[in-house]
Every structure is written in structure tokens, then in C-alpha cells.
Design a protein around this nucleic acid. Structure first.
Lengths: 144, 144
DNA sequence: CCCTTTAAGTTGTACTATACAACCAGACCT
DNA sequence: AGGTCTGGTTGTATAGTACAACTTAAAGGG
């Protein structure tokens, strides 16, 4: 029979273990792109370009952090800066074709890894798990 | 109706978001102890003391990393080293009373945060969510 | 028994991610 | 025009991590 406290304890323990391993695991899986770089590229693709400030606000990162991350991605030729039409201070960041390709590659790898990991789950369990994660994250993260 | 790929996609996205936020969130919640320090202390409590090498093996960290983490925890007075009875090279690490107290404090804070976050979940959902996380982590992490 | 090999830990070095603060330049508002 | 706000970069500092070199002690094999 389920015991409320025991379940909460397990959730806490397992999420903690997951968090502890996540970055290292992500780095091992795709050395090309850190979790943050990947997220930034994905966001750019999703929005079809945005400003560094928007990224910082969205992911609760300091603007200097974003500035350096973007500089690195630009050095790698994955991102380009375009002048913002209506504000000379700002730059609109866009994926380059190369950036889009790298993102697609890493996305495909990640997706394949998740699919494999979840291969023996039945559809109803996947659906419920997805729902629980959404619900959990919504309770932690008012924004995003 | 649930769609297998859509669910996997959601799981991936939400776990990624969680991983991205986890460390910063943990640091905000208890500035006293990083996620890793917390984990190491908890492990020591759990096992009633162990060697640095065991910690490194268990958490897939380099021994130098553990050495420095432990040195920091010792500096804070949370951990003490005792000579290993049967091996002069080794040290057995133990929580100090202060370390046990700090750990208890942080554990209580974490537990309270999780309880609150999950307060409006019913027992059956908690139980299922816990089960899914266990199952997921088991598929990623053969050891531990 | 010595000698080589293995194991436990520490220290040097380097790199990444991050934050905060100082700054610059363009925009906006009276 | 002058003061203030905003987007972004750069300087500096810190944490966490890894890898490699080293020290000391244990273990094993002639």
C-alpha cells in the first residue's frame, strides 16, 4: 500500500540522484554541446532567433554568462548575430545552417537515447510519467 | 489519446529542464551545502563511515575531486578522518556531530520543500510517480 | 625477503560554468 | 540637451571537476 511520506522520500531521492548525474551524463553523451549550449540553440531554433537578454531572462542566467556562451557558439560557427532592426544596441541571434545541423544531430542522438531507455515502457506508463513530470516541473518553475 | 513519441519527447524535455535548473535551485535552497557535498554527507551517514575511494567509485567522481570535497567538509568541521584499522594508507571518513546536525538540517529543509511541492498530489499519483522515477533511473544507472 | 606492482590519497594544473560589478553605447523621456 | 534605462561585453572571482604526477603503504611473486 502506498505510503505518502515514503513516496515523497523516493521522489526526492531519485530526483536528487538524477540531478547529480545529469550534467556529466549529458556531457558524455554529446561532448559537442553542453546542456546549456544545447538549450540555447534549441531556444533560438524554437523562436527563430532572439536576443541574448531574452535568453538570460528565460533561463535565469546572468547576462554575462549568456554573452560568453553565445560568444563560444559563435566561435564554433553555430550562431550568428544580426543587427536588430529597431534597436542599434541589440543583436538578434540566429542559428547558422551549421548550428541548425549540429542541433539536429544532437537532438537526434538525445531522442534516440531516450527512446531506447524507455523502449520497454508501455504507452500508458509513458503518458502518465510525462504528465507527472510536467506537473512536477510546473510546481517548481512558475516561469518558462 | 497518448502518443508514444509525444510522451517520450515530453519526458525528455522536462527532464532536461529539470537537470538544467537543479544545481542552481539546490544551491539557492541550501547555500550551506552543494548537492554533491550533501550527497557525500548523506552517504557517510548511511554507511556509518567509508573511505574516500568508496565515495569516488560510488558517485563516479575522480578521487581528486572527492579529496578536495572532503577537505572542504573537514575544514567546515562536518567530517573527520579516522585511521583505518587494517590499512595504514586509508582513512575512514565519519560525520562529526556537527556534520550530522547540518545534514539533518538540510535534509529537513529539502524534505519540507518536496512535501510542499507535492502537497496537492494524491497518494496514488505520488506512488506511481515514485515508481516511474525509480524505473527510469534504474535504466540509466546500472550501479549505485 | 626483496622487488615490482597495485591501491589510497594529495597536490599541481587546467578548464568550464557561473555570478557580480564595472563599464560602454545606444535609446528613451521629459 | 541631460539624466536614466537597457543590451551587451569585459574584468575578476569562485566552485566543481578532471587528468596527471607524486607519495606512501600494502600485496604478491620470485
Amino acid at each position: 500500500m502506498p505510503d505518502r511520506d515514503a513516496s515523497v522520500e523516493t521522489i526526492q531521492r531519485e530526483l536528487t540522484a538524477f540531478a547529480r548525474r545529469a550534467r556529466a551524463a549529458a556531457a558524455r553523451m554529446h561532448p559537442e554541446l553542453s546542456l546549456v549550449s544545447f538549450t540555447l540553440l534549441a531556444h533560438l531554433e524554437d523562436r527563430g532567433g532572439c536576443r541574448a537578454t531574452d535568453l538570460a531572462a528565460h533561463y535565469l542566467l546572468d547576462k554575462s554568462t549568456v554573452s560568453r556562451q553565445i560568444a563560444a557558439l559563435e566561435r564554433l560557427g553555430l550562431v550568428e548575430r544580426r543587427p536588430a532592426p529597431e534597436d542599434q544596441r541589440a543583436q538578434v541571434l540566429h542559428l547558422t545552417p551549421r548550428g541548425a545541423g549540429t542541433l539536429a544531430q544532437v537532438t537526434a542522438n538525445r531522442r534516440a537515447a531516450f527512446r531506447e531507455r524507455l523502449a520497454d515502457w508501455d504507452e500508458a506508463d509513458l503518458d502518465r510519467f510525462a504528465g507527472y513530470l510536467l506537473r512536477y516541473n510546473a510546481s517548481v518553475e512558475p516561469l518558462d
